[in-house]
Write a protein that binds this DNA or RNA. Sequence first.
DNA 1: TTTGATACATAAGAGTTTTAGGTATATTTG
DNA 2: CAAATATACCTAAAACTCTTATGTATCAAA
Lengths: 116, 116
Amino acid sequence: MLYSSELIKGTLRTIILKLLCDEQKMYGYEITQKVKDLTKSRIQLTEGALYPTLHAMESEGLLSTETEYIGKRVRKYYSVSKTGKAKAAEKVNEFAEFMETMRVLLNIDLKTLNVQ
Amino acid sequence: MLYSSELIKGTLRTIILKLLCDEQKMYGYEITQKVKDLTKSRIQLTEGALYPTLHAMESEGLLSTETEYIGKRVRKYYSVSKTGKAKAAEKVNEFAEFMETMRVLLNIDLKTLNVQ
DNA sequence: TTTGATACATAAGAGTTTTAGGTATATTTG
DNA sequence: CAAATATACCTAAAACTCTTATGTATCAAA
């Protein structure tokens, strides 16, 4: 069961940065699959959102790329720059604090939370 | 210290519905202040976002209104309809699950979380 | 051989929020 | 008492992000 898309808004960059910090290098399609796996299909990144964001993050200096050929098929690997690493830590931390603030605001009891 | 605005995207309706369920009735300005108080100024709703959203939610049947005069000044109170109550529960629950999914995805340890 | 998966990409449109403005009353402070 | 701040509503242009739709092409499996 997918989350309504409005929830995911604003988290895409944070997700990309965090995954790339953990995995050293990944290509776009791989990122969509990894997120799908890790979230049990609850978050499915669309390519229309992902690719433009990756391009933007590269031009901002957060990511760098290297192209590889698998047979005749192209793969564009992304990795985080030093600036990107700092940004990742910052963004994950901010999201963690945001979650806690929202938990209080919405009065959510974590003990009763059991996501399958 | 304010959260970067992109994080708050997509949570406005959930916040409004939840507050109105707890408080029976509130007016727009009051909502902005309540959220500011409850979040220690980390989330500050802007009126440009709030009022159009309240109007939309009213026209969707989630909220109803009654106008009151305090001296010569107008106050427009909003309360949740039956549909609104159901929607509130649904949205808060969805957000709770989303938080848990993101916590796993970003590998956030709640024990180390200490938001001032 | 055709379907589905892999793999990239762009562009129009939709939706939400910011920024910036507008109006007006009430209260506090110098 | 004048000026500043707080209260209280509102709208509209612009910016930003994501969805939906489309396009291209290779590879594997049925």
